[in-house]
Design a protein around this nucleic acid. Sequence first.
DNA 1: CGCGGACTTGAAGGTATTCAACATGCGTGG
DNA 2: CCACGCATGTTGAATACCTTCAAGTCCGCG
Lengths: 244, 244
Amino acid sequence: MSDFEHGPFSRKLSAFITLSEAESAVLASLHQRRRKIAAGRDVFQQGQLGQAAYVLSAGWACSYKILQDGERQVVDFQVPGDFLGLRSVLLHVSDHSVVSVTDIEVSEVLLSDLLGVFERTPRLAAAVLWAASRDEAMVVEHLAGIGRRNAVERMAHFLLELGARLSLVGMGSRAGFDCPLTQYLLADALGLTAVHVNRVLRQLREEGLVAVKDGYVAFEDYERLTEFAGFDPAYLDQPGPLLK
Amino acid sequence: MSDFEHGPFSRKLSAFITLSEAESAVLASLHQRRRKIAAGRDVFQQGQLGQAAYVLSAGWACSYKILQDGERQVVDFQVPGDFLGLRSVLLHVSDHSVVSVTDIEVSEVLLSDLLGVFERTPRLAAAVLWAASRDEAMVVEHLAGIGRRNAVERMAHFLLELGARLSLVGMGSRAGFDCPLTQYLLADALGLTAVHVNRVLRQLREEGLVAVKDGYVAFEDYERLTEFAGFDPAYLDQPGPLLK
DNA sequence: CGCGGACTTGAAGGTATTCAACATGCGTGG
DNA sequence: CCACGCATGTTGAATACCTTCAAGTCCGCG
């Protein structure tokens, strides 16, 4: 049985462990409670008692925090195959909010489901922990970018990372990718103002590195952009399953 | 049997699950390979093939990334009970480095140990995943701070969070805590220069909020500082075990 | 005693923000 | 159908925050 039949989530996990039929079946059983959510709706909110997490099967979502003074910081964007709110389910109280950027489709995963999966198929526990680690690695890279890169490098690096992630699920290439993010969302992700995001994008465009226009990110000179941003995709790549 | 007998790691996990004797024994078995490391030594490095993670049992450590241009971003500091390199063991390649800030004591945990623990005691898998989630929540809060708080608020929030974490393991209070971090380390953690850290600390001292001097952080007005920094410890608190 | 690491302070400069104005495109209702 | 509102994108000018560069202090230690 192909690991790819059950959608992007199985596809993602199968990069870490080779899924047995039993394990595939257990994963498939997680997709019982499907929901469609329109663009711009909160999936869940910061502070909410969250017993459920979700697996995103279609569309883009965005996890963010609202600070005391009302400022928003986008922590990460989620694309198909990613978890929504995995931390929340384990922390009992959500430390962040998630909003749909486009129309999305999700499967609800209860804490009890997750614990059941862990007991019946411990290898899947490792796979889920791996997926969580990979997500955290991206958050950490994001942290480093905000802390230590200037606005232009930060944007360049961010666009390259997003492109690499999307390539892994067949939604992007070295040419570019469709991107539904507004300059406001980009600003809140990169710790900038929307005004400055605009200037930075102009600069990257004028230097012939990357052009963002009409919902499409076009890499005009992938090599030079990679060089400029100091982008190293090692933390995203998974050469093969670690557990056979 | 008290959950506290086996050191800060068991103490931390027992905030999430009530440990059975069998589970405590399994945890204790993880502390077979103990190592002492002098201050200022790398425990492991970014890019290294890391089969092993560590549990910190004494002292302070610091995880960081080095960017292309040589700039350092400190991701988090670790105090007793915290994991070192859990992500690395699951990602196979470490995405960050860890250095000892003080003399430290660690226990090595192999990937095979961890998988064994998951198979024998699935509830511990959940507990470990919870601990990882809690650590990630701190990284996310850190990200939000760097992205959306100015230098003074950022520093205030950081010191409050550190104080709260240390209080949980009995190493701090609302009065203050011992802190071995230099202004250079603080700068690299907060995405500032050491020079500006110095000015920010002076400002916080002059406003009677918090004073950092001779390795001790003294909260001079905890209430007002909390208010000023917009500090909400919800994501650190765990009212009681989620799994009995 | 001299050296290095950590800390401190001033002055100048650059990056990103703030404020303000305007352009563009899309959907909705008059 | 066109007017209008609203979200998004664009650009300029003034300002603020933080960095950079530079100089110097303090202290522990070989």
